[in-house]
Simulated scan of single mutants.
Amino acid sequence: MPASSHRAPVVVIAPDSFKGSLSAQEVAAAIGAGIKRAIPDAEVRLCPIADGGEGTLDALMHAGGERLTVTCRNAAGEPFMAPVGILNNGSAVVESAAIVGLTDAAGTALPVDERTTLGVGDAILSLLDRGARHFLVALGGSSTNDGGAGLLAALGVKFLDAAGEPVPPVPAQLQRIARVDASLLDPRVKQAQFVAMSDVDNPLCGEEGATAVFGPQKGVQPEQVPVIDRALAHFARVLEAALGHQAATRPGAGAAGGLGYALLMLGAQFRSGAETVADHIGLDQALAGADWLITGEGRSDAQTLHGKAPFIASQRARRAGVPTTLLSGGIDRKSLEKLQTSFSGCFSIAFGPMSLQEAIAQAPDLLKDSGEQLARLWHASADQ
């Protein structure tokens, strides 16, 4: 039920980022500012959230910790400085999208079969040097499809051809691997625990595998799909023979172009990205005694209901008896019937026709205005 007019309402704001525009923190702050314009005495609890893709590091760091930059390699193998974090509980956070992401022009300048996850391994090594032994690795938004060979190479695993020469850890070369030498794997890796944050349950190879399902969005051409898929399958056979255990068919192995597979081979546990973030930021505690939850993302459609951050937030709000409003950059009208099963109302921040560039430029003000108008409507109904 809406808050009584005899006390200040408690509003929880838990959006994902508007990717390419605003971070989850900025989205939450803008909506919160709009709420306060309409209801000055409202208690606004900001809980930016993410689902394991771009913005996951920012969402986790909102609850406190140390933000760092480390030297690592992008998807093209070129050195640059990437953000990582160490949370207050000592867990280290590595966001794949911040290292080998789809939005990195330098990394994606190379064809997808030449890209590598070396940089993700570099980031893990840097954090191991700082004493981290528990890692949260966010897998969404990667531009790579190397089966995690780059990550393993950065951690010390050697890939050799029939002549004993090193094989570069990129998809175009994986078929050449004849032997894997894991004797130089950094010993600290065996002492570490890895949580892979992803909602993907695909295997590494096959019709539902990394290349066939996710490769096209990274630039894999139709004729390349079987070629790269065979290369990953070959890589997995040689690697698993060397390490003595299997993971290629396990759920999540196909996450992030097979980066999930490499982490599984290191003993990683898979967890929902949104659930992990929600736990860490204390979303359930924020919902305790709340009257209203507002969540959202850049664009919402039927896929939102498949473990995306707004859906997870709405499920937790439902368990707490708190109604949820979805406020996103855009809403797929064809998905409204499905979306409204999880949200009390679904709204776009656009007040009229505008280009994407205009929407991005005006996003903070659009969010404030939308938050204010929703709050006026909601508060008016509470006073009835």
Rank of each mutant, 00 (worst) to 15 (best):
Ala97Leu: 14
Gly206Phe: 02
Asp161Trp: 06
Ser314Val: 03
Gly329Cys: 01
Ile360Phe: 13
Val213Asp: 06
Thr116Ala: 12
Pro40Lys: 11
Leu152Gln: 10
Ser183Asn: 05
Gln269Pro: 00
Gly345Tyr: 02
Arg179Ile: 00
Asn74Pro: 07
Ala59Asp: 00
Asn88Ala: 10
Ala242Gly: 13
Asp186Asn: 14
Asp291Asn: 12
Pro83Val: 07
Leu160Arg: 09
Val100Glu: 04
Ile99Met: 08
Gly85Cys: 09
Arg130Ala: 10
Asp201Arg: 15
Leu87Pro: 00
Gln384Cys: 03
Lys36Pro: 00
Gln303Ala: 14
Ala106Gln: 13
Ala92Cys: 10
Ala236Trp: 04
Phe194Val: 11
Val200Asn: 07
Ala75Met: 09
Gly209His: 08
Ala233Arg: 13
Asp284Ser: 15
Val11Ile: 15
Leu232Val: 07
Ala196Phe: 06
Leu152Cys: 11
His280Glu: 11
Gln384His: 11
Ser5Trp: 06
Ala317Met: 05
Ala255Asp: 00
Val12Ser: 09
Ala172Met: 11
Tyr261Thr: 00
Arg237Ile: 04
Pro203Tyr: 06
Glu240Gly: 08
Arg73Asn: 07
Ala106Tyr: 06
Phe343Ala: 00
Val167Trp: 03
Pro323Asp: 07
Ala14His: 09
Ser370Trp: 02
Asp301Gly: 15
Gln25Ser: 14
Arg316Gln: 11
